[in-house]
Design a protein around this nucleic acid. Structure first.
Lengths: 186, 186
DNA sequence: ACCGTAGGAGAACGCTCGTTCTCACGTCAA
DNA sequence: TTGACGTGAGAACGAGCGTTCTCCTACGGT
């Protein structure tokens, strides 16, 4: 492969890392697999990410930004504050239906590495906190009681985990219906 | 260690497997760790479980039986059918508060091995199906609409995952409150 | 044109770990 | 007593993989 700008190589490495780590699990993917899929040489990889764990962290961080941006962009298309809350679950359904969907990357990573890598565990907690805070914002904007946010969060987490395990999109609709009832009750 | 009955050795191996696999993750625990913690020699271990994957399967299967029995025994103490539904979440709170709680063993195992071990993935699905069916039974006994079972299931899964990641018991109470509202609405 | 440097390909190193093998010992049947 | 057998302790084997090193090529500045 020809000489390549560092920023480009970094993105290609992260593209490969995301596809492989998410699809097969972190531990099942070697640095050599990343090289093969990205075309970035091992030497370059280790210049950009001095150890595999740092590549994992960078993968989770980039995915976190993208994931939350995609969600927020989808939700922002709705006007009504209560509709926005339900739109979260509509977006989950879209996500669950994508090719290669294999559950929540953070939940999976936590199961794989949470017990052995404090840094990954902290990143998972940060991601989930950010998602919960986002939901709390939507709930506040709709003038609904704060306790609702935690309940919606649990529904969304349950849907992610269940969709990941079963490979079906149905959990998103079930969660949406439960959310609708809770919003109405709130 | 003295000569040991096979059944006893098997239980000791599974005791060690459960403690270590659950506490540290499957991949972070070697067969030698199992030997050290159980006192069962490697030769014996491989007689009882011809490969590590079979030890993992036996661990998940024994834990599945015990987990569901514990839950059912706790719930059965309540008389009122609707109270029984809420008791599921009371039991979750107890479970989350136990020493060494580190989330749902099946969700964690799925994150770790779901992509690489079809047998483990199938066991996770079977466990979750059984839990969902149990909830559906409680819902039917209470004369509530069947759709409620899926919603309660998602709340419970969300609570497990969130309690595992945060190490707190609060998600059980949040899920219980949401369940109470959904039961009342149903 | 020439040299210093960066980069790519891939071999090599060292460690971990699943699995098997060796060997010595104790037990029990004949 | 003897010898076949099962067992425990632990060495050994072989593969996988994170990480580093070697060697060679190509390019950029002077």
């Amino acid at each position: 492969m020809a000489v390549m700008d560092s920023a480009v190589a970094r993105e290609q490495a992260l593209d490969a890392a995301e596809e492989l780590f998410y699809g097969r699990g972190v531990q099942a993917v070697g640095m050599d697999d990343i090289r093969g899929a990205s075309g970035v040489s091992l030497k370059r990889l280790y210049q950009l990410f001095p150890a595999k764990e740092q590549l994992v962290e960078a993968y989770l961080e980039r995915r976190d930004v993208r994931w939350r941006n995609r969600l927020a962009a989808f939700v922002a298309r709705r006007e009504d504050p209560r509709e926005r809350i339900l739109a979260v679950f509509d977006w989950l359904e879209e996500w669950f239906g994508e090719d290669g969907f294999r559950g929540c990357a953070w939940i999976n990573s936590y199961g794989e590495l949470g017990a052995t890598s404090p840094r990954v565990a902290a990143q998972v907690r940060a991601h989930k906190d950010a998602f919960r805070a986002y939901l709390a914002g939507l709930v506040a904007d709709a003038g609904l009681p704060g306790a609702l946010a935690g309940q919606l969060f649990l529904l969304a987490e349950g849907a992610m985990v269940t969709a990941g395990i079963t490979g079906q999109t149905g959990p998103a609709r079930e969660a949406r219906e439960a959310a609708r009832l809770l919003v109405r009750a709130g």
